[in-house]
């Protein structure tokens, strides 16, 4: 990928894409795919649904940019996350009407996560922690989980989250605070992996 393109600001990348340079969108996609996908996955809690929604979101983003519906004043990622959130809500509405089965245990999300370099033991601990944190987050109440995901993975400010979820900044901050405190409570209720326990209780 072009190094020069990587350094270009999102606004310029979007302008380039609107002029017909597909490479510009490729840069945006590689820059934000992890954050967008993590956000979607933690909202819908199902890998295959998250994959479908991710594609749906990004294709919608492409079409909206091409049709000139992207507002340059806003930031790109919060805009994409807003679209992702709306599509996830639509998905939940559909699921409520037509319930589907959850993903099978055979399909493991962690098989696709790029692993950091290190010893085999480090990898096992890292995998265990990742699985553990994911499980804890997924047990949080919906509103708290939503704020935590948007702040930690989608990089939305508390002000942006407040605007998106139609609450005050203090409410958004309060939900984040409760989310973090509840993680501790949930961790104490479950058997905590050694490495995580050491870090939190230090």
């Amino acid at each position: 990928m072009d190094k020069a393109l990587n350094k270009t600001q999102d606004r310029d990348l979007i302008k380039g894409f609107m002029k017909g340079n597909d490479r510009c969108f490729e840069v945006l996609l590689s820059k934000y795919k992890t954050k967008v996908f993590t956000t979607i996955y933690l909202i819908v809690k199902d890998r295959s649904i998250a994959e479908d929604l991710f594609q749906e979101v990004m294709i919608k983003v492409v079409r909206m940019i091409r049709s000139g519906k992207y507002n340059e004043e806003g930031k790109f990622l919060p805009w994409v996350v807003r679209i992702a959130r709306n599509l996830a809500i639509d998905h939940f509405r559909k699921v409520q009407r037509n319930p589907i089965q959850h993903e099978s245990e055979d399909y493991d999300i962690f098989n696709t996560i790029p692993r950091s370099e290190g010893s085999a033991e480090d990898k096992i601990i890292s995998e265990e922690n990742t699985r553990y944190i994911k499980e804890l987050i997924q047990q949080l109440p919906d509103k708290q989980r939503e704020v935590l995901i948007m702040r930690s993975y989608a990089d939305l400010s508390f002000k942006e989250i407040a605007s998106l979820t139609d609450v005050s900044i203090n409410t958004a901050l309060g939900r984040m605070r409760y989310a973090l405190l509840n993680l501790k409570k949930l961790a104490q209720e479950k058997s905590v992996p050694q490495s995580y326990e050491n870090k939190v209780q230090r």
Binding site: L29, E51, S126, T130, R202
Partner: peptide, 29 residues
């Protein structure tokens, strides 16, 4: 310290979309 450690732990979590998903998007593009 508690909030910082918990936030750090949460931030370690990241999931990648499959290569097929990314390719599918680029095909459409």
């Amino acid at each position: 310290e508690y909030f910082q450690l918990t936030t750090d732990q949460i931030n370690t979590l990241s999931f990648e979309p499959s290569v097929a998903s990314v390719q599918a998007v680029m095909e459409v593009v």
